[in-house]
Amino acid sequence: MVMDIISWISVGLILTTATTILINRDWRVGLGALAVQYLAASWLVTRHLPFAMGSAKLITGWMVVAVLGITRLGLTNLEHEEDTFWPRGQGFTAILMGIVALITMGSTLSIEAAIPGLGLPVIGGGILLIGAGMVHLGVTSDPWRVTIGLLTLLAGFEILYGAVESSILVTGFLALVNLGLGIIGSYLLMAGSSPLEMEDDR
């Protein structure tokens, strides 16, 4: 019973953090929300995987947050790419997140019926994160936000996939993929922001 309550609190946290990341433009707030999101996601992962594997996901996630944070701290003159399409803005993304929440509520029960045993909070949390990630990727091509979007989407996928696959190798590879995405995201942020280094590339 207590476990279920904590799981539902995690789903609530996921909804809040995903919406915050999507709407808020301050990178510090975004990264903080991502760190909390990893905490909630790793709790949901431990519903089906051993605690050690859930902890590995949490540590990996926080490492990614650290990598992105350190990179972003070092960049002072980063220009954010403005969205070039309509509709846009915080209201629009909030509506999109609302739609994701509605779809999650609609689909969670039917997925639980199709795949019994996953658990409603696990399905709800996973679908919410996947939906939030898709919204992110759909509304921007800015490398920073794309990286956050991909990490969000992968976190949702890991919650659901952890319920059906418990291989250590897969967990390890997924951790590497998450770390890799964080590093690639940092690289994309730094690329072009430092003075020309032509000796490396003729």
């Binding site: 996947i130 990727l137 091509s141 490398p143 794309v146 991909l150 989407l153 992968l154 996928f157 659901l160 996939y161 696959e165 897969v170 993929v177 995405l181 690639i184 690289y187 994309l188 730094m190 690329a191 072009g192 922001s193 430092s194 003075p195 020309l196 280094e197 032509m198 490396d200 590339d201």
Partner: peptide
């Protein structure tokens, strides 16, 4: 695809998105 001195264009970012989206679909 993106040298350190060049700002990333849309191509590499889209490539990364598509390849990453493929993985969950295949595993599921």
């Amino acid at each position: 695809l993106v040298p350190p001195y060049q700002k990333p264009g849309r191509g590499p970012v889209r490539f990364l998105i598509y390849q990453t989206l493929a993985m969950p679909f295949i595993l599921f």
